[in-house]
């Protein structure tokens, strides 16, 4: 397994994609901080990067990588290695490199602008961790989508669609339900809906630090009581892990039976 990981890393680090990925986060974070000159403003912009762009970049990059790694995969498949080892190794290789690229790409500029000394440092670390978790989730989704779709155009389209639904459409339906049924007590429904979307989970987790004052408001307090406790945190992290494990399960199941 470690060997596959090693060679996946080698392969990934060699391709310019990862550099682009790192560079994107580095430049955009740097740019934000340089022009806003206000770390609290920078954090809000970083939030948008994490919620919109990490899922998009992770799912797109993983899909491309999966299809392009086909030759590499075939080469490995003819070697005396277990199939699951190959596929798990490739997933870990890619998601770890993407998560690291993002973590460093967005983290270094903040260090440079001195956030670690401000009271925003906790929020920053929390945000970066959420970004890392989202990288794992969307990379797993991309791999699952790709392995089920031999046709790469179809796979790619489906990946983008999944991103669009989870990043934007889902919340549109969410708010519609909230408004439409506002006469009923909706807190439990709202919590359930949040648990079902990893992007919402990441967002709420970040809100608990960034917007704790608003969450202390009357209904907000209910959410704070759920997500803000150790129990709630554990539930939301577990839910995000499920969002990684379930696609991975399907991906590996398919990988075990797929013909190359």
């Amino acid at each position: 397994m470690l060997k596959i990981l090693k060679y996946s890393f080698k392969d990934i680090f060699r391709s310019k994609w990862l550099l682009i990925y790192f560079g994107f986060f580095f430049v955009s974070t740097w740019f934000l901080l340089y022009f806003t000159n206000d770390p609290s403003k920078g954090l809000v912009s970083l939030l948008n990067i994490i919620l919109m762009l990490i899922p998009l970049m992770a799912i797109v990059f993983s899909t491309i990588y999966f299809y392009n790694a086909r030759e590499f995969t075939e080469l490995l498949l003819a070697q005396p290695i277990r199939r699951h080892t190959i596929f798990t190794g490739q997933y870990l290789g890619l998601s770890l490199s993407m998560a690291t690229s993002f973590f460093l790409g967005s983290g270094i500029p903040f260090l440079f602008f001195g956030v670690q000394n401000s009271d925003s440092s906790g929020s920053l670390i929390n945000m970066l961790l959420m970004g890392v978790l989202l990288s794992f989730v969307f990379s797993a989704l991309a791999f699952a989508i790709s392995i089920y779709n031999e046709n790469r155009i179809k796979g790619f389209g489906l990946a983008i669609l999944v991103w669009l639904v989870m990043a934007i459409v889902y919340d549109g339906i969410f708010i519609y339900l909230m408004v439409r049924f506002s006469d009923y007590p909706l807190e439990k429904l709202a919590i359930a809906l949040s648990l079902l979307n990893p992007i919402d989970l990441a967002r709420i987790n970040i809100l608990l630090q960034l917007d704790i004052s608003a969450l202390m408001g009357y209904t907000g307090a209910i959410f704070n009581k759920f997500f803000g406790t150790a129990m709630g945190m554990a539930i939301s992290v577990i839910a995000m892990l499920f969002w990684t494990i379930i696609p991975l399960f399907f991906y590996l199941r398919k990988a075990g039976r797929k013909d190359f």
């Binding site: 506002s182 949040s194 809100l207």
Partner: peptide, 20 residues
């Protein structure tokens, strides 16, 4: 404004959809 009308919708604070 939405939060004033439907307080539960606070859970969608800073959602990209809301930003749009």
């Amino acid at each position: 404004y939405l939060v004033e009308q439907v307080p539960t919708s606070i859970i969608l604070l800073r959602s990209p959809f809301m930003e749009l």
